[in-house]
Each structure stands twice: as C-alpha cells, then as structure tokens.
Design a protein around this nucleic acid. Structure first.
Length: 272
DNA sequence: GGTCGCCTGGTA
DNA sequence: TACCAGGCGACC
C-alpha cells in the first residue's frame, strides 16, 4: 500500500516487531522474488540479527548487525502481516521472515510486484532519491530548481523519485488540487510562488496521511483522487480524469488553473 | 520524452 | 468480459 505515509506506517510496525530479533529463516514463495534473491543469499541470513529499520522514500531497509541490508519495496500492493510461524500463511504470502522467538513477518502482495534484495555488507545501497518532502533542506527554491530542468507535466515530475522521494499517484493528484495547479502544467514553467504553494500542499497532504492509510477515511480523506465526475469539494466544478505517463490523474479544471498550458490556436488550414 | 511489461486480483 | 490498480525499470 505504498506511498510515503503508508510505507512509514509499515516501517514503524517493522521496528516494533523485529528490531533486535535473530532471524531463523527468510523464505520466498514467488518465482519473481526467487529471481532476485538467490537461495544461497537467503540461507546465509540464518542467525543474523536485525539492528534497525530505515525508510528512504518508499524503500524499506532492514539493517542487520553484520552490515547486510534486506531491501524491500512494496510497489503497488505490498504490505506486512505480523503473525507467528505456527499459523498458516496468508493467501497472498510472497515471502516470510521468521525469527527464533517464533514471530514472523509475511510480505503480503496480491499482485506479486514487490521486491526484496539482499545487499552485502560494506556496499552502500544506492537508491538515487531526491529529498524527503518533510525534510527541512527541501525549500521552495530547491524544488523550483529541480523542476526547472523538466519539460514534462508537473504531475509526472512529482512521481519522479529523484525530484521528491515518496510521492505517489494518489498524493500527487491531491497535492496539485490543494495547490490549485493544473497537473498538465509544464514543470519548468511554474513560478516560485506557485512552487511554494505546491510544497506546502505536498507537506499538508503527506502529514495528514502519515501513520494511516489512504483507505482510512479518518486519516486520508481524498479530495480528488478517484472522484471522476463528482463535484469538486472546493467550488462548482467537476473532477476530470486524464491519463499522464500511463497513470490516472484527477483534477478540477475550474480551480486548478496555475500553470495551465496556453492553448495555441491552430491557424486555419490553407487551401491547396 | 512517452509506452510497455511485470503480476494478479477486484470491480463495473 | 473488460478495465483498472497506490510503482518502477526497460525500452523506443
């Protein structure tokens, strides 16, 4: 269930459940995962102890005391289920980490797109991520500079983890709605004032959702995502759905006007 | 820059 | 039966 807030929630749960525990075994059940993590590398995890768990963007890094890192990405549908080794595996179990105290963490992922990689010690995990949205080093000026090199639509740029780490398809739409920016606006053309508003909106959206899931109505009421054809919550407009970069974008054309691309009127076709 | 494939399920 | 899905890397 992964965007930054959902991954943060998953990481917090991991910390409370497995930090300090000794690994009994790590098993992978899905062929796509077997292709990434060799049987040998998995076997060698036996006896290792979990030192700490880190989130970077939507990535989860389980640091072991010996320096190795179990690197997990949920992609679209992944989530953790915490149970014990004596229970039957959940229906969509793709991998499981079991510990010597009998507890177990199951990677539950109906679509099986999640990834697990084992990194050897001494080799830093290179993720090529931009700043976290809540990082104080991320100023509007810095964000504008990062966007200034992109001729792509702002919505697509927001999904580029090298610009901001952690935003996904839902909260990108939500942030643009909140900042009243047209998702089709060319990233490089946004003014500093507009980018300032955008950054504040991103932070508000992330902060509102953190600790919960978008499906938790309490934590993350969505203003535009998946509301095609419904009335805009802000004013008298109808939410549209368009496709950008192969993904759905939802927006209100009446109130999201900042950066709207100018429509150049086509010249009348000359008769020949 | 845009499109496709990875996988498999839920839903209209 | 079709389409859609919170991600991302490979490809043109």
């Amino acid at each position: 269930m992964p965007e930054l807030p959902e991954v943060e929630r998953a990481v917090r749960a991991l910390r409370t459940h497995i930090e300090g525990l000794e690994i009994e075994a790590v098993r992978v059940f899905h062929p796509a995962l077997r292709r990434r993590a060799s049987a040998g590398a998995l076997k060698k995890l036996h006896g290792a102890r979990v030192a700490w768990v880190e989130r970077r963007g939507k990535h989860q890094l389980i640091h072991l005391e010996d320096g190795r890192v179990v690197h997990v990405h949920f992609r679209m549908n992944g989530d953790w289920i915490f149970d014990s080794a004596s229970e039957p595996l959940p229906r969509f179990a793709r991998a499981a980490l079991s510990f010597v105290n009998g507890s177990r963490v199951v990677l539950d992922d109906s679509r099986a797109l999640s990834t697990i990689d084992i990194h050897p010690a001494e080799t830093p995990v290179a993720l090529n991520l931009g700043p976290e949205p809540l990082d104080s080093s991320l100023t509007a000026e810095a964000l504008k500079a990062a966007l200034s090199r992109r001729r792509t639509a702002i919505k697509v740029a927001l999904l580029d983890q090298r610009i901001i780490a952690g935003l996904g398809n839902i909260y990108a739409s939500e942030s643009l709605w909140r900042a009243k920016i047209d998702p089709r606006a060319v990233a490089a053309t946004l003014s500093l004032a507009t980018v300032t508003r955008l950054l504040a909106a991103i932070r508000a959206v992330i902060a509102r959702a953190t600790g919960g899931r978008y499906t938790d109505a309490e934590n993350a009421r969505l203003d535009v995502y998946d509301r095609e054809g419904k009335r805009c919550r802000r004013r008298d407009g109808t939410i549209l759905r368009i496709v950008q970069g192969g993904r759905s974008t939802y927006f209100c054309p009446r109130c999201q006007r900042a950066g709207r691309p100018r429509v150049t009127r086509a010249l009348p076709r000359a008769r020949s």
